Computed example of a mutant assay.
Amino acid sequence: MAMTKDIGIDLGTASVLVYVKGKGIVLNEPSVVALDKNTGKLLEAGAQAQAMLGRTPGNIVAIRPLREGVISDYDMTERMLREFIRKVSGFSLFKPRVIICVPSGITEVEERAVIDAGIQAGARKVFLIEEPVAAAIGAGIDITQPDGHMVVDIGGGTADIAVISLSGVVESASIKIAGDQLNEAVVKYMRRKHNLLVGERTAEDMKKRIGCVFPKEEDESMDVKGRCLLTGLPRVVSVSSSEMMTAFEEPVDRIMETIHSVLERTPPELVADISTNGIVMTGGGSLVSGFDKLITSRTGIHTMIAEDAQSCVALGTGKSLDSLNHMQDGTMNLSRRRQMN
């Protein structure tokens, strides 16, 4: 009987990616669980549960157990993790060692919750790695060198901005403004501007299809269905990509300010490195059209989107499985920072 493979988990607000050593990413599912309220039984986890969001009968609820990058519903997170770990490792006698990715601004209490949820879900031992570090490794940056790199990781619930050198985070900031907040901004805009009520899924679809944060060469538009707030009846409105830019303005400005403030706090030698190496963007949120152009134009530093941006964090978490044996009891880079604070 083979020993259980080590597992890397990118536990995101929007999706969970699981990496199995030797196999790569084997699971990529939305972080949603559906349960029967009457019995408390978990019905579905992942994609099937996501299809139920916003359209369930009374006894079934679809929950997103992670909010803004941290666990908001401990019990559900644990059950979702257990379901996903079972999916990838099957039923084996040995429990896997698991490394889980966390936002860089996480508190010790939140950290503990992630470790406990992992252990409860069937891990033998849980290690943590900071999201921007994992993202950098996944984007193919050699973080062991004394050379400064800046990573802007925009996920579903948090945007993590970090300057990395010598395998550690030199300066970082984590804000709870990312993909979800962009969707919320679209919902608010549609309400304010068009008196139209649209759901989260529709907003997400608009973001992917016509969303942009930097002027497009040609304005695109799409028809959006929703409920008219004046009549209460369904209505279709045509929305353009330049309108989306207006809708995104506030959250995007907050992300830009954070990038700026991290750069301001970074030692000059490393800023020089970053202007040579450029800024690397990872995470699903970085795929909104024009994000790289916007950062380039506002900072004057060449910005590129990592290949396979959505899986960068999971890939990096997976690659760091190789150094599990060197990790001093449980945390990579986190313990060093704890002593500094």
Rank of each mutant, 00 (worst) to 15 (best):
A2N: 11
T4P: 07
D6P: 06
I7R: 07
G8Q: 03
G12F: 05
T13W: 06
V16Y: 09
Y19K: 06
K21P: 04
K23W: 00
I25Q: 06
N28K: 03
L35P: 01
T39Q: 11
T39V: 13
L42D: 05
L42W: 02
A45M: 02
V70K: 14
Y74G: 08
M76I: 05
M76S: 13
T77L: 06
E78W: 02
R79S: 06
L81H: 06
L81P: 01
S89T: 11
F91L: 03
L93I: 08
F94A: 05
F94T: 01
F94E: 13
I100N: 01
I100Q: 03
C101Y: 00
S104E: 01
I106H: 02
R112L: 05
A113F: 01
D116R: 13
G118E: 01
I119N: 01
K125G: 12
F127I: 06
L128A: 07
E130N: 13
E131P: 02
E131C: 00
A136T: 05
G140S: 10
T144P: 05
V151I: 15
V151D: 02
T158E: 10
I164A: 03
V170L: 15
V170A: 04
S172I: 00
I175S: 00
I177Y: 09
G179N: 10
L182D: 08
N183T: 13
N183C: 07
A185G: 04
R192K: 10
N195V: 13
L197V: 11
M206L: 15
E217I: 12
E217C: 06
E217L: 13
V224C: 08
L230V: 15
L233D: 14
P234V: 06
S241T: 12
E243P: 10
E243Y: 14
M244P: 03
T246F: 05
E249F: 10
V252L: 03
M256N: 09
P268T: 15
T276N: 09
N277Y: 11
M281I: 03
I295P: 03
T296D: 13
S297C: 15
I301T: 06
M304Y: 08
M304Q: 11
D308G: 07
D308E: 14
G316H: 09
T317E: 08
L324T: 09
H326I: 10
H326P: 05
Q328N: 12
